[in-house]
Design a protein around this nucleic acid. Structure first.
Lengths: 331, 331
DNA sequence: TTGTAGGCGTTATCAA
DNA sequence: TTGATAACGCCTACAA
């Protein structure tokens, strides 16, 4: 490994002089600088960032704790984050928890061993108390989760209002029998979306029916299962609200395989507006979730916390209804 | 920051003794160990991995250079990689190049500043010479790209044979007029897939037609453009081979919007078998690309290069044709 | 304009 | 079983 010392001796100067030229700071004689520059060139020297980190106690690494990178909902957020972090000279250390709570603990624990300057949790499932504990120990941002603690710096959209809007839309299209396809109850976003469903129903004078609620785990296959379940009902809903797009997609797929037309027979709305949802047929009506922006905002906010001078953009994190082809008006 | 020294003085021992207990190596008296353990506990001490890295000249970080994490083709590979790396105690530093060659150079350059122990390129677009140069400087693996240099350690599937199989399938189904929808020509995988298309055509006594080849950039929108283009032809092909799934999906979408039935009017085959390709309607016939396995294999091979004792699994990296619903037999 | 000394937090080596 | 010392590669502070 080529070090400062090697360059110094090759150029007949002290290490400090070399250090000055690589950082481009302080006074260095023009002729000396040239000699050093060529030594650096010839020996293909690269500053050791680890040594720098040790001196500055700053790694320029951020850890991103992601439930599942294959899920486009997360890869889109991560894309938004990484771009900004990189722009400001930070690396992204990415870890995939497979949605397992224990892993969230494991990795955030690991982040504490000074390998990163900060931490971003994407839709974590651990209890809020644990999150708060971590956030007190290391600069962190929690995305897509609302925790009751001023220790945690969080970014979330109003999942409930988006869901109200979605279910309202179904009702305005004449539907009265509306099924819910929901995710796990340790994901707060899911709970909020379910709450929106209830709110919309109630304010429209519709009472919920337990048999109209299918609880699952956010996967495509869960959507298929949901469809099978509802098809087995004597009096199935005419419209459905799925708390994420992937389940809505699974539902549609299964419906079509059973010659049930979407939106002819069943209407459905999803949530998140992942990129494929516009690619299927019929294109899915869904609630947009500003994923890139949430990811970017997490980056900006974390950078600000780390003392980097950034201007945090004033993003509006609203969740508009994206009307496409999966809802039909009924008399 | 709590350091070894703090623990040492709190426990009335030298730093070395503390170091021994946290590494769990060497002899430490039982009673001393207990005293140190409780000091660590009370002060919430975490070893500074950066300092360790400096001593060991080993960061336990691997850089993953990815063209686009939102593209499921890559996120699936990355998932496969990260899981294995993590299992062996390595962190994944992920960078997204947005498919820009200049970024590939920038980031691999950065990797040289001792922030990572190794490097994985996913389907890089830089010239092979540059890749070879980097690979001589740092342990690296190149995935989904074939470079003519024994300096570079590479993992790839036989894109050509997979494509031959795909186009053969179209021909066996009676198609003689077959269009190609291809990606950029600085992506080697694309070139090989195109070569497979040509080979299949020729061995079946069909000569290629320039107007049957649409060159684009691997995106969904490119697939839509392709469809528009072909619909404008007086004598369009009856079947298509797209060199990736995303373009095939765009093609299908655009076709259906123009009331062109798939596979009724046009048959189409994609390549990669990304997860959505089975979710659309009709489900896409495509060539499977063992993405998780390629990602995992990259991790194993890199670890082996780094001297980690791993057993490299004997994966078969074959690319089977996955027959689904987007091809129709014609008389 | 350049150099010296000391330290960042840890570990290897040798000595006690 | 434990400790002192030097080192990893770089930087800050001060001195020349």
């Amino acid at each position: 490994m080529v070090t400062l010392r090697d360059i110094a001796s090759r150029a007949n100067v002290s290490v400090m002089t070399v250090s000055r030229v690589i950082k481009n700071s302080g006074y260095v004689g023009k002729e000396t600088r040239a000699r050093i520059a060529s030594a650096i060139e010839e020996m293909d020297y690269r500053p050791n960032e680890i040594a720098r980190s040790l001196v500055n106690s700053k790694t320029n690494n951020i850890m991103l704790i992601v439930p599942d990178i294959e899920n486009m909902f997360f890869s889109e957020m991560v894309k938004g984050t990484e771009r900004i972090l990189r722009e400001y000279g930070f690396q992204s250390i990415f870890v995939d928890t497979d949605g397992i709570v224990q892993n969230e603990k494991l990795f955030s624990e690991r982040a504490l061993s000074h390998i990163v300057d900060g931490l971003i949790f994407y839709c974590p499932r651990v209890d809020g108390e644990y999150l708060a504990k971590i956030c007190r120990k290391i600069p962190a941002i929690v995305v897509d989760r609302k925790v009751n603690s001023e220790a945690v710096d969080q970014i979330y959209i109003d999942n409930k209002s988006g869901s109200v809007r979605a279910v309202d839309h179904l009702i305005h299209n004449g539907h009265r029998k509306i099924g819910l396809i929901e995710g796990p109850d340790n994901v707060l976003a899911n709970l909020r979306r379910k709450a929106g469903y209830m709110t919309s129903l109630h304010k429209n004078g519709i009472s919920e029916r337990v048999e109209y609620i299918f609880s699952a785990n956010f996967t495509f296959e869960d959507g298929q299962e949901a469809c099978k379940y509802f098809l087995g009902l004597k009096d199935p809903p005419t419209a459905y609200f799925a708390t994420n797009d992937l389940m809505a997609l699974g539902f549609i797929q299964e419906a079509q395989e059973n010659n049930v037309s979407i939106p002819g027979d069943f209407s459905i709305i999803g949530f998140d507006n992942i990129s494929i949802s516009r690619l299927i047929s019929p294109p899915l009506t869904t609630v947009n979730n500003p994923k890139h922006r949430m990811g970017a905002l997490a980056a900006y906010r974390l950078l600000a916390k780390l003392g980097v001078s950034v201007e945090i953009p004033e993003y509006e994190l609203t969740n508009q209804l994206v009307i496409r082809g999966s809802v039909r008006a009924i008399p």
